[in-house]
Design a protein around this nucleic acid. Structure first.
Length: 810
DNA sequence: AGCACGCCGACT
DNA sequence: GTCGGCGTGCTC
């Protein structure tokens, strides 16, 4: 029986979210493997789409006539057996399309580009031929994008059978090549050519001797020119005379370490000496590497405790076993400094994957990994899919970071994918953090994760003292200002001593909630204990969990002050105020606006590092990983903004952020100081951060989570539905809710539906339902059922998405 | 997604 | 009468 191929096609809809069966033409039989990309005809007409071969079969239930695969796009599979299995699991776990999961795991260039070509097949009249085709016999349909009249004419011509629409899938994945030269004659023949040269032909003489020295090899022309001083013109003459040939040489678009040279493999940095805690961590993790055990570790180490060195030496152990390693870092922490540290230790075995790379660089790094040339991958979230074989260890640094969860479909969490890959390869997974997520820390306490701690700083220096400044009396005394007296004094002090300061403006939750300037009260929902969000459109305060609504208050419900208002400030405004207060200070502002241009982020940091400025003023992006020895003061202008968010993780994020920035002060020989300005000096997240007391924060927060039935005591799922008409969105959600109530376990809590914070986006109205459950055997099937059911005509134009374990609830 | 089939309004 | 509006259903 002839083998048939199962193909997942690039048509991301619920109806087509399954493999289709295709005939395999004899010519393609040998090239075709599971995991290769193919071009297949799909649907009526002659539409072509890209697809992935996910299996072979010798029979099918399909009654119609099978179509043949049109062509094979890859010589080698681009998805190996592991990643194929993973993609299927991912689609199931995240309620997303299989095809979307496959693309998520691969470099962007492997997503083929579909072209529609309009081809002239019959005589056209002069006018049409000239206007539409400009004398050619085909054009890309995309050329007519914004010309509705032209499109109308084309459709008419199509109807008349004068033009045809063809489809073409473009394979964008191409290797970059540069010119190489290769001798075309053997040594003797070159010698002969040399002796018959005119005695004045010095350059050609040198070329011939050079060619003699590289017989049988290919050398990059640019290098040959540099090495020998022979000019490009002389090489061209050599080509003419048939002495040599120019050949394309494939090169990798290796992302350079931002101008710095890549370290060469013979001068790698030696491992640092470990302290007892670090050594124990390395030993325990390595033992699991050696034993092929998929143990999950939680490595909790205070800032400066040397976690990175533990990672490096653990990776070295895996490499020594002939295995590979995956190192995940949040996007904003993936700075040149951290990448270079890995490169100095492991040299050219390191590959880097992150969103800052061009598509070409991304593709080339990916191929180096896939070919086994890179054994250590350092990357952000999506690097968790790096095609490493024989994985020995996976490390997730800053495991508490919300950015490990993708906030669009497929909504996966890199931590869960990492654990899946760990199980597949028998490799331990290390979750590292100074402030672990409550979920992870709770699991460590229950023994589900193996708990390791690094309680001491490597340099034995104490953590910097943190001063909390209560802004309420400050505002009363001096009027509206972003700068308290103690902070200004401290800033002035650094200026006069020639030391630097970092100021962070917390932008999260910008101006969406109400807070009293006199007592710090934030308006909360009476049912949910979560902040109410201001809706200017309806002039009300709303709760996004239960739908509670109340008018905007004029006086504080707690202290009856009239100073209750929105909360939030922009960096630009703050910079202006600061410049006025400290005219002599040189300030660098870092926010989305000043760093939008590529490379600006690094440039500003380099300037600050070179002491071309006294103060670095920025948003959250400056909280991570920066290490400037001359910085002795860190100030947080508004610690509270995060606390006002209608999100049960608000306190946790505030605590993390404050702990994080505090680590930026005084890391070298000079002692540091941290000043936190707040309207809520009594809040436990601020007080515990001030004391550097993670444990205290953990237990306090855990008890609140237990009372309110939030993670880690409950799991959560968020369902969202949208429709251009608000009524329709609400009606669809009501129907979904009733289905959930019928199917789910009675202990499962279903909140909502409620309108989302930004209820109307892109001309659609959004509603959400939050499900809280401990275990519910009916949940998965019910959610699948909802995805299916909402395809029917009762849900016309309704878009439904499911977000398991959402990180943000706004 | 993108296409064809199919059933109701305003036109050569 | 028919051209074409877009609602509906299918794609190996």
């Amino acid at each position: 029986m002839v083998e048939l191929a199962q193909v997942v096609v690039d048509v991301p809809t619920m109806q087509t979210n399954r493999p289709y069966t295709y005939q395999v033409p004899v010519l393609l039989e040998r090239q075709l493997q599971v995991g290769t990309r193919v071009v297949v005809p799909f649907g009526n007409g002659h539409r072509q789409v890209q697809g992935f071969v996910v299996g072979f079969t010798d029979g099918t239930d399909y009654q119609g006539k099978l179509k043949p695969i049109q062509s094979v796009m890859d010589l080698q599979p681009v998805v190996n057996a592991e990643l194929l299995t993973l993609s299927k699991w991912l689609a199931d776990q995240t309620y997303s399309f299989w095809i979307a999961c496959l693309y998520t795991m691969l470099p962007n260039l492997l997503k083929g580009k579909a072209h529609r070509i309009v081809r002239v097949v019959d005589e056209l009249d002069e006018q049409d031929y000239y206007d539409l085709f400009a004398g050619r016999d085909f054009r890309d349909y995309a050329d007519f994008e914004n010309q509705p009249e032209a499109i109308a004419r084309l459709l008419k011509l199509k109807k008349a059978g004068k033009v045809r629409f063809d489809y073409q899938v473009e394979n964008r994945a191409k290797a970059k090549t540069i010119t190489g030269i290769r001798p075309q004659l053997d040594f003797e023949a070159l010698e002969e050519a040399r002796t018959s040269l005119h005695p004045n032909a010095h350059a050609q003489n040198r070329l011939l001797s050079y060619l003699q020295s590289i017989v049988g090899q290919t050398v990059v022309q640019k290098r040959a020119e540099q090495q020998t001083g022979i000019s490009a013109a002389t090489f061209n003459q050599g080509v003419k005379k048939g002495w040599l040939k120019k050949v394309p040489v494939e090169v990798y678009r290796t992302p350079q370490a931002h101008g710095q040279p890549l370290p060469d493999d013979h001068h790698l940095e030696a491992p640092l000496r470990l302290n007892a805690d670090q050594q124990r961590a390395v030993d325990e993790i390595s033992s699991q590497v050696h034993a092929h055990k998929a143990t999950t570790f939680l490595l909790q180490g205070v800032t400066g405790s040397g976690k990175t060195e533990v990672y490096l030496q653990t990776i070295a152990q895996a490499l020594a076993d002939g295995r590979t390693a995956l190192m995940l870092v949040p996007e904003i922490s993936l700075t040149p400094q951290i990448v270079n540290r890995f490169r100095r230790r492991f040299g050219s075995q390191v590959a880097v994957l992150h969103s800052g790379l061009s598509n070409g660089e991304q593709y080339d790094e990916w191929r180096r990994i896939e070919r086994g040339e890179a054994k250590v991958v350092v990357g952000a979230r999506s690097a968790v899919f790096a095609p490493l074989d024989n994985l020995g260890v996976v490390i997730l640094d800053e495991e508490h970071e919300g950015s490990y969860k993708q906030d669009e479909a497929p909504r996966y969490h890199a931590r869960e994918v990492a654990k899946w890959r760990g199980r597949y390869h028998g490799a331990p997974v290390v979750l590292g953090s100074a402030t672990p997520s409550l979920e992870s820390r709770a699991r460590a306490l229950k023994g589900r994760y193996h708990f390791l701690r690094l309680p001491h700083r490597v340099n034995q220096q104490p953590l910097p003292p943190i001063q909390v400044v209560d802004m309420r009396p400050e505002i009363k005394r001096r009027g509206e200002s972003n700068f308290s007296t103690p902070l200004l004094t401290a800033l002035n002090d650094r200026l006069s001593r020639g030391e630097q300061s970092i100021l962070m403006l917390n932008r999260r939750g910008f101006s969406s909630f109400m807070m009293c300037r006199d007592c710090g009260t934030v308006l909360k929902c009476p049912n949910c204990d979560i902040s109410l969000t201001l809706h200017m459109d309806t002039r009300t305060m709303k709760c996004h969990y239960c739908g509670h609504e109340e008018p905007i208050p004029r006086v504080c419900p707690h202290c009856h002050s009239r100073h209750i208002r929105y909360y939030g400030t922009g960096t630009e405004k703050v910079q202006a105020e600061l410049q006025q207060l400290l005219p002599q200070a040189r300030i660098i502002r870092m926010d989305v606006d000043t760093t939008r241009r590529k490379g600006m982020h690094e440039k500003l940091l380099r300037q600050f590092g070179a002491h071309q400025a006294d103060i670095l003023l920025g948003t959250q992006m400056i909280a991570k990983g920066l290490d400037f020895p001359n910085v002795t003061l860190v100030g947080v202008l508004n610690a509270d903004t995060g606390l006002g968010l209608p999100d049960f993780r608000a306190s946790e994020r505030t605590f993390d952020l404050l702990s994080q920035v505090s680590g930026r002060a005084g890391r070298a020989d000079k002692p540091g100081q941290v000043i936190i300005q707040t309207f809520n000096p009594e809040h436990y997240a601020i007080q515990d951060a001030q004391r550097h007391d993670y444990d205290r924060f953990f237990y306090q927060e855990m008890s609140l989570r237990r009372q309110a039935s939030y993670p880690p005591y409950y799991y959560t799922v968020r369902l969202m539905a949208s429709h251009p008409e608000e009524q329709e969105a609400a009606r669809a959600m009501a129907e979904i809710k009733s289905l959930l109530s019928q199917r789910l376990a009675p202990e499962t809590i279903v909140l909502g539906p409620t309108p989302r914070a930004i209820a109307r986006m892109k001309r659609r109205y959004y509603y959400q339902i939050v499900i809280k459950y401990k275990q519910d055997s009916a949940l998965h099937a019910t959610l699948q059922e909802i995805m299916q059911k909402t395809q029917s005509k009762g849900f016309k134009d309704v878009q439904v998405s499911i977000d398991p374990d959402p990180q943000y609830f706004i």
